[in-house]
Design a protein around this nucleic acid. Structure first.
Lengths: 362, 362
DNA sequence: TTTCAATTCGGAACCGGTTCCAAGGCATGC
DNA sequence: GCATGCCTTGGAACCGGTTCCGAATTGAAA
């Protein structure tokens, strides 16, 4: 006794109405009398009717899905953004189709697949640089496109001012009296990322310039975007001996974590012998007591997804640029350890997180 | 001059063949002559034809999408699993539709939405406990279901032995001579998670029992699953004065990170005055030099997704359970700092990560 | 030349909702 | 009593691929 799938015409027949009426009930149309609506809803429940999404998609000409393209999904900053995007899309009743590209080949493949199979109504690209011809192709096909963390003109996008971010990070170190400040960044060009790191570097140079400090290019190193790579990169700076920097600006917290490890490995005190500031304010930053530049990661996702929802509803007609604010979060890695010794009061945590401590009775 | 969307019959007409033939070409059918296939492919390219996924879905009765249900997507262990799932699904040409549930209400809503709109061909649930009636419902509807990190009998699932994991973690501390060992876990019941933490706790008790140590329930605390909460939880144990533990097992690396911070705040040496071991081996573990129990997170995702792909292809007919291996990774937080002072050779990193150091010339 | 099978192909029916148009029912106004 | 208009409803046409059946073509065997 295999149950046959119920379709709309069975419901219509069973409820003694036309298929059009059932469809109108499904879509919450106003032009159905309350009595009829009630009867149809009852019948649907009784038959355990479940409408088929793809049939609806075909008729409506919309898939109800949005493609989200990310690269290196495990990066904390990417995830925070992704979370924001997914939450907004889910709330809007849209499917969040996530594609993870490890390299440029895969990126191209995913983009082609998204555009050429018409699987999604729109595309959100997170922290990835896209080739111009790809953008042109998507525009030509009239597929709404939103960029998160990539400042490409003439496209709807959510960005931060990376140059300014790099400047205020460096300014923070300068304000603490540092004059030899190192920079550790990632190779934006090698990966398929954006120019974030490079722009933060520009901000670093700018801050130095304003302060009247000649940049020492011996203090600038770049490598892959990972904590482990940053350990080695940090060591390069630290092994300069008496010429080593008194402070280091890492272009992301992930790399800053590696720098801190390198400092520990060299037996150097943070920030006594070398201060550190990162960028992003991800979860580990507070654990590592790492000074950083906060950017609203979650919000970049929610804003980007909201723009997409608006675009799909035809609410926005011209490209719009949203810039989110930045803020230096000073912590122990630059200020010193007066904070390290302060203990978070238990009561406070209990209040914020609903902490409860269970002591198992024997 | 708005381009009308091209459909299959236009291609057929233009190529001088029937729609059936075009469809066969699209699906790589064998029963098309090479000459005809070539002609059709040319026509498709010339017209820039892009088949509509939803039309195909409707005809084939399959959506080509898999729903992935996660909770707390930002947790590093969840992401690693998610990455594995997404990669395998993408490779198989399936859409990965990600749903993030923050609480039980949202979880129920997402599950209902997935099953009752027939949006996906199968559902993968990551690190979430699901109510029995939900599982029954999904089974009744014949929707393939795979669990990752949740050991529910009679369902295809990828798991680890959490009890054993808790035991080997505790054994590691015991082998180093520790006798007063604290346990810090999370409230699995309050969140919508699985029983992982609780089972690791059982392993902890088991190890103590085998070692002939009476468990001291004063050394057992639980709270929300976050680093910040773990700081406060750790403080509870550390403020026991002379009764404080000489070692702490935290049921996840995220919480272990908080414990280490608490130790620093109390000015206690790790592992001299208190050793720490965590669980998962996420990225920050190596940065923090944190001893841990490695579980194959990425692999749990790839295995689970592979099972789903097999199920959708009708290759597996009976529930199957895959258990992944565990392994203690001893690091500085339990062994001591003989490792801390060893510096990772630069050459090694260069070899593994393609590190290159760029010194900008002026 | 005829027979038979294999290969290739055309096209109608179909998947299951959506939408538009026509029509029925009912109340109101003159 | 009839015209008018609004609300509600039924159902055909349609969205664009897929699949199955029948037919045409080809080649080999008889």
């Amino acid at each position: 006794m295999k149950k046959l799938p119920i379709n709309i015409s069975m419901v219509a027949a069973e409820a003694g109405v036309g298929v059009g009426t059932v469809s109108r009930v499904l879509n919450g149309s106003e032009q159905v009398s309350d009595a009829t609506r009630e009867r149809v809803l009852c019948t649907m429940a009784r038959l355990d009717y479940r409408p088929l999404r793809s049939a609806s998609s075909l008729s409506k000409g919309r898939t109800g899905a949005v493609g989200i393209l990310v690269s290196g999904i495990t990066r904390p900053s990417v995830i925070a953004r992704l979370e924001g995007v997914i939450d907004v899309l889910n709330d809007a009743g849209l499917d969040a189709v996530v594609l993870n590209a490890q390299n440029r080949t895969q990126l191209d493949h995913h983009l082609t697949s998204l555009t050429d199979q018409r699987r999604v109504d729109g595309i959100i690209v997170i922290s990835i640089g896209i080739a111009d011809e790809r953008v042109a192709r998507i525009k030509e096909l009239d597929i709404p496109l939103v960029l998160v963390d990539n400042d490409v003109p003439n496209l709807p996008r959510v960005v931060i001012d990376d140059v300014e971010g790099g400047k205020i990070a460096t300014d923070h170190l300068l304000s603490l009296g540092h004059r030899r400040i190192g920079f550790i960044g990632d190779n934006s060009d090698i990966a398929i990322g954006t120019l974030s790191s490079e722009n933060r570097y520009l901000g670093y140079l700018k801050a130095l310039g304003v302060a009247g400090i000649e940049p020492d290019f011996e203090l600038v190193v770049r490598g892959p975007h990972s904590s482990n790579a940053a350990v080695a990169l940090g060591s390069v700076l630290l092994e300069l001996g008496k010429d080593r920097p008194s402070a280091i600006f890492a272009s992301s917290d992930t790399m800053a974590a590696g720098v801190i490890k390198a400092l520990h490995q060299h037996g150097l005190d943070v920030p006594g012998e070398c201060a550190v500031i990162g960028f992003d304010n991800i979860e580990i930053s507070s654990i590592l007591d790492l000074s950083t530049v906060r950017q609203p990661l979650l919000e970049s996702g929610t804003k980007g997804a909201s723009m997409m929802v608006a675009l799909l509803n035809g609410e926005i007609f011209e490209p719009r640029r949203v810039e989110l604010p930045l803020e230096v979060i000073p912590r122990g890695s630059s200020l010193g350890n007066q904070r390290k010794l302060s203990i978070v009061p238990l009561g406070e945590v209990r209040g914020h997180h609903g902490l409860h401590i269970l002591q198992r009775g024997g």
